[in-house]
Amino acid sequence: MPFSSSRADCSCPGRRGDATVNHFNGAVSFIADPANWPGAGGIAERLGEHLWYSVLAVALALIIALPLGLYLGHTGKGASGVIAATGALRAIPSLGLLTWLTLEISFGIQLPIVPSTIVLLILAIPPVLAATVSGMATVSRPVVDAARAMGHNEGQIITRIELPLAAPTIVGGVRSCVLQVLATATISAYIGLGGLGRYLLDGLALRDYEQMLVGAILVSVLALAADVTLAFLQHRLRPKGVTS
């Protein structure tokens, strides 16, 4: 997968600007060239790897955070403490935690997907959990009390009343989760995995700025596409008659 190895003289601002434009144009040309998409190490393979790491982490986050958030939002018991505790985990440096987990877990080096998923999961859970609890909290209590008075049990109240009304807010949390995971999944390349982070890591090692721009552009476009898709879903999930 050849990249331009030319290096512009950056001794003056004008030449630095020209070099930046040249690097950007080279990166766009590389992405637009169909020959660079198929095959081992091609753009298609790197995109597939990046999506696999991200989808795995987001799916596990939904499995963990969504039921927990529905319970905490419905009962109101310990919601603030749990959200604060999970949110505090996001302050841990992702790259440092990834390195530590890879070395400390007995099979971390043989199966680097495990520490990578753990790190991404720590980032993915808090926004989904917070949005779920927040969405449940915005449901009007008289509506819930009316459903309970009509004979609905607690499970029916959650699934038929609170969840549909909270769905747009929950999807908003999933949007934040997906964007963070897609951006951070690039660090998986640091422990030998693939994904779009390979362009950034390999480009940095070779001082190949075009290659680094390829990775940055592809991650940005992928995140933008995911955000637009989830924004449309968020709008579609708004129950009829609900204006805010």
Rank of each mutant, 00 (worst) to 15 (best):
L179Q: 13
L218T: 04
V114F: 15
E162I: 11
N153I: 05
A61M: 03
G194K: 04
T75C: 13
Y190H: 11
I118K: 02
M136K: 06
F232L: 14
A65W: 04
V174M: 04
T75W: 11
T138L: 13
G241H: 03
D145E: 15
A124P: 01
A231F: 01
A226W: 08
R46I: 05
S29M: 10
S5N: 05
G78K: 06
A216W: 07
R46A: 15
L196A: 04
L182K: 02
P112W: 05
A79V: 06
K240S: 05
G172S: 08
L165N: 14
A216E: 08
G173K: 01
V242N: 02
G194F: 03
L129M: 13
G78Q: 00
A223S: 15
A149T: 07
L200Q: 08
F30T: 00
D9E: 03
S80Y: 12
L213Q: 09
P34Q: 08
W37M: 02
R238E: 13
G151Q: 08
G192P: 09
T186S: 13
G81V: 01
V219G: 08
S176E: 03
G42Q: 02
P115V: 01
S11D: 09
L111I: 10
I118C: 05
G151C: 06
V139F: 04
F24T: 11
S220M: 15
M212E: 12
